[in-house]
């Protein structure tokens, strides 16, 4: 017995078949309309940014290269070496080795500090989970997106590099942009 599709049948709606004088006229008209469209674009200004000279401004919440922070009053590092960022990282690109603060050698405000803090930016996917995971706001995502380099080794950013004040290379968007 033949199978009857019942309600599963989908009626396909097709455009009228081009053909005859009407079809030729329509094809010709549409051809000219297309030409008009492209010509009109030529009279407008290009919308592109001339990149190396003219940088695309980023939004304040843009997730660029990470920054580590210090307390502005004491100068101590905010990071306490808890490794929560490393645990949250889906790309597994953060490496933290914690060490104890001592009265003689006090680096952070908490009990421990990050002796080693490395982010492998060649693996980082800039998801911002580290920023979310951090209980002390010690790591945030910056605005810098120009991070290309000639060696993979150079893309492993150490704690000193992440703490250093980054060169302001990226313009921020203004209110009305």
């Amino acid at each position: 017995m033949a199978w009857t599709p019942g309600d599963d049948v989908i009626a396909v709606q097709r455009a009228p078949e081009p053909g005859g004088a009407g079809g030729a006229y329509r094809a010709f008209g549409e051809t000219l309309r297309g030409l008009k469209t492209t010509f009109a674009r030529m009279l407008e200004r290009p919308v592109v940014y001339q990149y190396p000279e003219q940088k695309l401004p980023v939004y304040p919440r843009f997730r660029g290269r990470h920054k580590l922070h210090r307390f502005s009053d004491t100068g101590l590092e905010k990071c306490v070496g808890c490794s929560l960022c490393a645990a949250a990282c889906p790309a597994d690109c953060i490496r933290v080795v914690a060490a104890e603060n001592t009265p003689e050698h006090r680096v952070s405000a908490g009990e421990r500090y990050a002796a080693v803090y490395e982010i492998n930016l060649s693996r980082c996917i800039f998801c911002g989970y580290c920023e979310v995971a951090c209980p002390f706001d010690a790591i945030t995502m910056g605005h810098d997106y120009e991070m290309s380099d000639y060696n993979r080794q150079d893309l492993i950013f150490t704690k000193e590099m992440l703490l250093a004040e980054p060169l302001e290379r990226t313009p921020l968007r203004t209110e009305d942009e």
């Binding site: 492209t38 010509f39 674009r41 030529m42 407008e44 200004r45 290009p46 919308v47 592109v48 001339q50």
Partner: peptide, 12 residues
Amino acid sequence: LMGRMQMRYGPN
């Protein structure tokens, strides 16, 4: 010309 018609500069 193709660049200008696509609202970009083309090689410059």
